[in-house]
């Protein structure tokens, strides 16, 4: 009995954490790739592409707030994932890890 308890308590890296780290990479890549969302909007603000009072209103009331919202939310994605990563145990019992692997494989 004591032997099996010892065997059951072997701790291994948490597969959820490993998988979530991959999600963190994807979230960060998305944020990097989205970096250009502000460039065209800045062009509408400072360039000669579209000028006049309607352009100004549209930039100030619609485009700029939208770009800010998108930028802020995209930058926060990685922090959201990192927060969750910190909540997860680094190690889990081997049988738990096996069950989690199965769950990850069938999701």
């Amino acid at each position: 009995m004591g032997t099996s308890e010892t065997e059951a308590s072997i701790m291994v890296p948490n597969p959820l954490k490993t998988a979530l780290e991959r999600v963190l990479t994807r979230a960060s890549t998305f944020n990097d790739e989205l970096g250009d969302v502000e460039s065209p909007i800045t062009e509408l603000d400072t360039g000669a592409t579209w000028t006049g009072s309607a352009a100004r209103r549209y930039h100030d009331d619609v485009l700029k707030p939208l770009a800010d919202d998108i930028r802020t939310a995209a930058e926060s994605l990685a922090a959201d994932v990192e927060h969750r990563l910190r909540e997860l145990d680094d190690l889990v019992p081997e049988h738990v890890a096996i069950a989690l692997q199965v769950e990850l494989s069938i999701r």
Binding site: V23, L66, I70, A73, V81
Partner: peptide, 21 residues
Amino acid sequence: LRRDFEFFGVDTANLTKLSNG
């Protein structure tokens, strides 16, 4: 990302803002 966030229990508030955006 939404599917993964929900699976792993990550807060989806910012994802929702992005979807609206």
